[in-house]
Amino acid sequence: MKALILVGGFGTRLRPLTLSIPKPLVEFANKPMILHQIEALKAVGVTEVVLAINYQPEVMLNFLKEFEAKLGITISCSQETELLGQLYPFKEMIEFHKAHGGEASIVVTKVDEPSKCGVVVMEETTGKVDKFVEKPKLFVGNKINAGIYLLNPSVLDRIELRPTSIEKAIFPKIAAEKKLYAIVLPGFWMDIGQPKDYIAGLRLYLDSPRKKSSTKLASGHHIVGNVLVHESAKIGEGCLIGPDVVVGPGCVVEAGVRLSRCTVMRGVRIKKHACISSSIIGWHSTVGQWARVENMTVLGEDVHVWDEIYSSGGVILPHKEIKSSILKPEIVM
């Protein structure tokens, strides 16, 4: 069984992090986003993964070759010359696809405001897709395409050798032939392509191992709620960490630091008594003593915030020094 993952986007909404590496390699809960997907595919018997790449293909190729042997799965890349556009209940989806006997299966998810999306109209009992309605003015359903597909090889024969949207050009035809089925995604689904959604998604993700009584989450008198700390990170005395915090490998969190609803990526140093909330701290950055970083501040790679600096919503590009406070959301170039 083969899988195709479309990773051709430029990740502009997640800048400045994606100025350093492609978005699929940005860590989410201390693991590159793309590895979450590849490991899940491997677990259900996928033997080959093809990645459709556009942005920084050489970086993606070098990284994935390292993990190909570790995961025991063949990973190949198809470099997109044009941007083509846009993975987890794989086991359930495979069983569903085999049972209904159609040509293609898609995963859908429920949303609160379907009028803002393209809605999938389907039979509730069988999952057979009737049609797609783009941003309906009248209520026709509350399920939208979640971007996960299981296709028979025959679907590939339907695709012409030119830039094609499978969602707009192919799926409606298969639905008209009564050969397209949809399965509702269990659990949660959301886009984590911009900082505020990344932080919100992290909260949902960290809540999952808590419900499963996982030992992966940190514990102790200094931990509040769901916290993930890499084994190589060092946490000082008198810190208060959590809720919804991830601390990456090689990080140093000095004494008296307060962290909440944030991600601290690989190699970061947080100096004494700093306070960080609702923010993302990029690789190898430093936050000075008594500094306060909040309100969806994002530090790119190798950013150094001086002592006693305040940042409210600053978006700081890589390799910068912040010597004066940022009192309102702005981009520091």
Rank of each mutant, 00 (worst) to 15 (best):
K2A: 00
A3L: 02
G11S: 01
G11M: 00
R15I: 00
S20N: 09
K23L: 08
P24S: 01
P24M: 01
V26Y: 01
F28H: 05
F28T: 10
F28Y: 01
N30E: 10
M33L: 09
H36A: 07
H36C: 04
Q37W: 03
Q37V: 01
A40Q: 12
A43M: 08
V46G: 07
N54V: 04
P57K: 06
F63C: 09
F63T: 09
F67G: 02
A69F: 11
I75R: 04
C77H: 13
S78W: 13
T81P: 08
T81I: 14
E82Y: 11
G85A: 05
L87H: 06
K91Q: 09
I94F: 10
F96E: 00
A99Y: 02
E103Q: 14
I106A: 11
I106K: 05
V107F: 15
E113Q: 12
C117S: 02
G118F: 05
K128G: 09
K131V: 06
E134D: 14
E134T: 07
L138H: 15
G141Q: 10
K143V: 05
Y149A: 14
L151Q: 12
N152W: 02
I159Y: 15
P163L: 06
T164F: 13
K168Q: 04
K168F: 08
P172D: 13
K173L: 10
I174H: 12
A175K: 05
V184W: 01
F188D: 10
D191H: 07
D191K: 08
A200H: 12
S208K: 15
S208G: 05
R210I: 04
L217N: 01
L217R: 00
V227K: 14
E231T: 04
S232Q: 02
S232H: 10
G236L: 11
E237R: 14
L240N: 15
P243G: 08
P243D: 07
V246D: 07
V246Y: 04
V246A: 11
V252P: 00
V257H: 00
R261W: 13
C262R: 04
C262W: 02
V268I: 09
K271V: 01
K271E: 10
K272Q: 15
K272I: 04
H273L: 11
C275L: 15
I276W: 11
H284R: 08
A291D: 01
V293K: 09
G300Y: 04
D302T: 04
W306H: 07
S311H: 08
S311Q: 00
I316C: 03
